[in-house]
Amino acid sequence: MGRFVKTAAFSLFIIGLYTFYSVFVIPPINPGEPPSESAASGEPATIVELLALGEEVYNGKGACALCHTREGGRAPALEGSALVAKARLSSPGYSGKAVDAESYLYESLVDPSAYVVPGYGVSGTDGGVSPMPDVRASSIGLSETEIRAVIAYLQSVSGVEITVALPERRRE
């Protein structure tokens, strides 16, 4: 029975080492809680609330910051997006339906392939298809209010005037 005890102890020791390393040595990172559904429960009443919601969605539920990092790389950086939107509309490669910066951003969110920034297309499609999902699709599932809030947030970080109307005023 000596060899059984020896090999069992050896195996337990190995398992113990792996466990110790995973539990105590690597930094403890706790994945975030699943995004709550109630993000847009109360309609934002002021621009400040709209911006706060936009920032929250941008970094949280919308998962925008996952790809749109400051360095670019996977997806275009968005810090100046509302600034470049105007120039985009008149560029020869543009074939979407947007008429102003706000509608351009809206289109980019719900129909990302309408215009793909050169170099960011899915490989093999010659820049014709964007890897970004429709933000209304259920893997992200933003509501209309949340999309508006994100656009307002993008305009805010770009430093341009916020043209997004608050939900009440849009309904009138």
């Binding site: 400051r70 950086a77 968005l78 810090e79 100046g80 600034l83 970080v157 770009s158 430093g159 341009v160």
Partner: peptide, 11 residues
């Protein structure tokens, strides 16, 4: 760094 900085009333 971020893409844009807003300060002194400018972008």
């Amino acid at each position: 760094p971020p893409g844009v900085v807003r300060a002194y009333g400018k972008v």
